[in-house]
Amino acid sequence: MDTLIQQLINGLTIGSFYALVALGYSMVYGVMKLINFAHGDLFTLGSYIGYTVLVVGASWVTATFGIWGGMAIALVAAMIGIGVAGLVMERIAYRPVYKAGRLPLVVSALGMSFVISQGIMAIWGPNPQAYLSGWTPKDFLQFGNIRVPVLQIAILVLALGLMALIYWLVERTTFGAAIRAAAQDRDTATLMGINFNLIIFFVFALGPALGGMAGVMQGLKYTRISFNMGWLYGLKAFTATILGGIGNIPGAMIGGLLLGVMEALFEGYVSGAWKDVFIFLILILVLIWRPTGLFGEKTAEKV
């Protein structure tokens, strides 16, 4: 029983990382119909930005602002840095290719993925880096036999809070309605007076920013970061996106959390080596059963 709860909490934590990254996939896909393969690498870049902030002067930041303040600054820096990176990426790699159709966009995204991950390697070196233990709180909360690190609870709460914020923004505000309209039909939305460029701006800043923050959280939780970790996170998050129904915001969140929990349970009770095989099998089975994901709308093509 204790193991079960422990695994559930672990699963929710990693699932919330997936969900945050998946949100970025889903938002970008919604308005651009582009699978942004570079998104996982932006996650990594966020992790490295957070790392750099915390490593400054062997952590002058933590010493000055305290442990919690240091982490907050790292998160904000990653959010801003990756938000800007997302916008730059859209400008140089996607906007000029947009008119050429979807396949060239995929290649451009793969190219961007190489550029970012190799750029990280060029700057921070090929060896993994570590978030040092002095930067994070060591406290535990004790529930019976279960010990849960305070840090993990904080991360979980923050991630869920961010998701709630995005959900509110996209599903409950006028601006969110504009985003959803633009995702359905770009031309009509533009004719209705929606500023499509503003939507692009928003989506390409916010989506990656969420991923960047998830990157920092990942570093805080697991301490080890490496330049090529992004593709696996990206792949898992993309899987979560598809599982939930691509372009569907709540779907991406639930897909991410579900994926994290399934993964943790499988790892805990069956086998760690086979967990990714299990995850992809689940994905394929779900798609056979529901070709547009769990919450994706059934789209019958108009003839």
Partner: peptide, 27 residues
Amino acid sequence: PVIHLRGDYLCIVTIGIGEIVRLVLQN
């Protein structure tokens, strides 16, 4: 079983198949 899937859904399934094969070989 998956040939009827559209564009991006087929894309992730082929990625999945690629990963499954690699992981199975590894295990």
